[in-house]
Amino acid sequence: MFGSIYSESPLWSQLRRLEQELDEAFGAGTAWSGGIRSLPPGTFPAINVGSTEEGVTVYLFAPGIDAKKLDISIQQNVLSINGAREEPAEEQGTYYRRERFAGEFRRVISLPDDVDPDKVEASYRDGIVQIRVSRRESTKPRQITVQ
């Protein structure tokens, strides 16, 4: 009635064949080669960018990275974050799948024109780097009272 749990349905066979064809067409170094959950190159670490009237906040999700070794710089409203994730190699083991990114990375984020590059703060907690860039005082909205 249910069949063996080890038998593969025709649909799964077709999906596996499609994945193999995509690997052949685009090369083994693409996002498809790691499976459906793999990230495309250049998207590690994941980031969120939010904006308020006060400034722009960037969250960099970087578990396992030494925050002191990150190189964070801002120039002409472009925020650059460079670093590396080291992963010890298992010399005696065989990997069947490796989804965790290891190696050097670089993320570049364009910021709005009204940010103040002299007012940047960065903090690290629980694997998340938070970078806050304030807006220039002259561009912040101000309330004008009528007399």
Rank of each mutant, 00 (worst) to 15 (best):
Q147Y: 15
V129G: 03
D71S: 15
G3L: 12
E104N: 12
Q92H: 03
S9K: 10
G27K: 02
F61E: 14
I72A: 07
R100F: 14
I74R: 06
F26H: 08
L11N: 13
S123P: 03
T52V: 03
A84P: 05
A67I: 01
Y6K: 09
L15A: 10
E53M: 07
G35W: 11
F26P: 03
S138V: 07
W12I: 14
R125Q: 06
R17G: 07
P117H: 03
L111T: 00
D66F: 13
K140S: 10
I144T: 08
G55D: 01
R37I: 14
D118Q: 07
Q147L: 14
Y96H: 05
Q14M: 12
L39A: 03
T139A: 12
K68W: 03
I65W: 11
Y6A: 06
Q75D: 13
I5L: 12
A84T: 13
A122C: 05
L111W: 00
S134W: 01
S123F: 02
S110T: 06
T30H: 06
N48A: 15
D116C: 07
S33L: 01
G93S: 13
Q14R: 15
L60A: 04
L60G: 02
V58H: 00
G50S: 09
Q147V: 11
G55R: 00
I81V: 14
G127A: 09
L70Y: 06
K69H: 15
S80N: 12
I128S: 01
E21N: 08
P112F: 05
R132I: 09
G3V: 12
Q92N: 06
K140F: 08
S134E: 10
E86M: 11
V146L: 13
G42E: 10
D23C: 01
P45C: 08
G127V: 09
Q143R: 09
D118S: 07
E121Q: 10
G93T: 09
D118G: 06
L22I: 02
S80V: 11
P10N: 08
R132N: 08
E121R: 10
S33P: 00
I109N: 03
A84M: 14
G55L: 01
E21M: 09
T145P: 04
N77T: 00
E87G: 15
G83K: 14
